[in-house]
Design a protein around this nucleic acid. Structure first.
Length: 427
RNA sequence: CGGGGUAUAGCGCAGUCUGGUAGCGCACUCGCUUUGGGAGCGAGUGGUCGUAAGUUCGAAUCUUACUACCCCGACCA
């Protein structure tokens, strides 16, 4: 791809209504634009990152034996009445009417729809366990959307639902999902904690949250300084107790002292039990020929929120520093004087073709601008590696290899393919 | 929903107190020069000042109502 062709409207100044760093940088880097409060358009660059994360999630879900479907965003009132949630949910459930005056809602989650699907199509214990997922746009009419896509009203989520014959099987699936979530966050390259959580309005007993650690996190979690233990502070606090009073207390798991950290909740896994299957008569015939309600689990991961979380954890005063796993482009070829010096343009284009054929995601800065403008943009949008082709190349064939993390070195342009061969092999 | 704040060109802002018909920087367009850290000169484009009503000879500016957006809180798979 060429810079002159792609739609990346970068901004020098941060729009005034953006508070947290990820929101500011996503706007400045030309990744998103606001349409209404908590509702955003994803521009090409933002969408590339979103898709990269989505694909990692999809690959890991498939590897864990889950199967992808796509459920509707618009859901009928009748299903929600079966679980009583049409009444229980507040105004975060956006209700709409169709032309026949029938009630629908925009799906904030899909337990009802998936449970309806399974009860109508799965009749025997022999068909279990099942783990079904989708990656889809959700809508929750949040009381107060904020921080850009971190807490939007419309957002992209991977939600999966498991159907198991008994509690033991549910626990097996739950642990597989727990493992899968760990792999997803490690593959993206984020610092995270698994946190004991309140299962909230959704019901069920066992529940854990996956938090990406970041200063701007909306949740406060208590972590042991001596073990893996972490718990949402909401579960530790007595009425009126101050969060800071927890710091330094003995960890509830008996190992070490409590440290208070901020986290962004990017994943949440639940063992639901029979809450929904009982309400909706989702059962199968057991080996003994009796109808038994299914044990269910549900597992959510916020795909769009992960984009913001990744930026919160990886930025500096110049801009975003993408982990290579999700970078929109891995390599940026900066041709200085590209529009004027044919040799620079030729070398840039040739290198682009070569690296692209090696499997790298490459962009060429073919714009008429000078070095400063090009590097500022490259740093803002966080491309991991920049290859600078300029005067030195014209003089003696040398190009500069400049990493977003600050490292830089000079090398002959002819040595680059070998370098990238090794680079790919080692990552 | 309670509290606080903002609304003037794509972005950042001044002008509002003290009413006189809209300005600055960046961006954008054209030309020439420039090209290893956000270039220079020259010439341009772009705004019914959030919406509506009112006061006035005259409203971005004063009054009232409304709307949108942001922050804190409550809320939250």
């Amino acid at each position: 791809m060429f810079w002159s062709k792609i739609f990346i409207p970068t901004l020098k100044d941060s729009p005034q209504d953006a508070e947290v760093i990820s929101h500011q940088l996503m706007l400045r880097a030309g990744m998103i634009r606001k349409v209404a409060s908590g509702i955003y358009t994803w521009l090409p660059l933002g969408l590339m990152v979103l898709r990269n994360i989505e694909n990692i999630v999809r690959e890991e879900m498939n590897a864990a034996g889950a199967q992808e479907v796509l459920m509707p965003m618009v859901q009928p009132k009748e299903l929600w009445e079966e679980t009583n949630r049409w009444d229980k949910m507040g105004s975060e459930l956006l209700r709409i009417k169709d032309r026949h005056d029938r009630d629908f809602c925009l799906g904030p989650t899909h337990e009802e729809v998936i449970t309806d699907l399974i009860r109508n199509n799965v009749k025997s214990y022999k068909e279990l366990p099942l783990n079904i997922y989708q990656i889809q746009t959700k809508f929750r009419d949040e009381i107060r959307p904020r921080y850009g896509v971190m807490r939007g009203r419309e957002f992209l989520m991977k939600d999966s639902y498991s159907f198991n014959l008994n509690e033991g099987s549910l626990q097996d699936t739950y642990l597989i999902m727990r493992d899968t979530y760990k792999r997803i966050l490690e593959r993206i390259g984020l610092d995270y904690k698994i946190v004991k959580a309140d299962s909230g309005a959704i019901g069920g007993e066992v529940s854990e949250e996956f938090h990406v650690l970041a200063e701007n996190g909306e949740d406060t979690i208590a972590i042991s300084d001596a073990s893996e233990f972490a718990i949402n502070t909401e579960l530790l606090l007595q009425d009126g107790e101050d969060i800071n009073s927890l710091e330094g207390q003995d960890s509830p798991d008996g190992h070490g002292k409590i440290i208070i950290k901020k986290g962004i909740e990017v994943g949440h896994i639940f063992q639901l039990g029979k809450v929904y299957s009982a309400a909706m008569q989702a059962n199968v015939q057991s080996q003994e020929g009796r109808a038994v309600d299914l044990y269910m689990g549900c597992y959510g991961i916020g795909v769009s929120r992960l984009v913001a979380a990744a930026i919160e954890q990886n930025n500096d005063d110049k801009g975003i520093i993408w982990p290579e796993s999700i970078a929109p482009y891995e390599v940026n070829i900066v041709g200085i004087g590209y529009t004027k010096e044919q040799k620079i343009a030729d070398a840039s284009n040739k290198l682009y073709t070569k690296l692209t054929s090696m499997g790298y995601k490459v962009i060429v800065d073919d714009r008429k601008d000078g070095y400063g403008v090009k590097m500022k943009d490259a740093e803002l949008i966080g491309i991991p590696i920049n290859i600078i082709i300029g005067n030195k190349f014209l003089e003696n064939g040398e190009v500069e290899l400049k990493h977003r993390n600050g490292d830089s070195s000079l090398t002959q342009i002819s040595d680059l393919p070998t370098f990238f061969d090794h680079f790919k092999a080692s990552s």
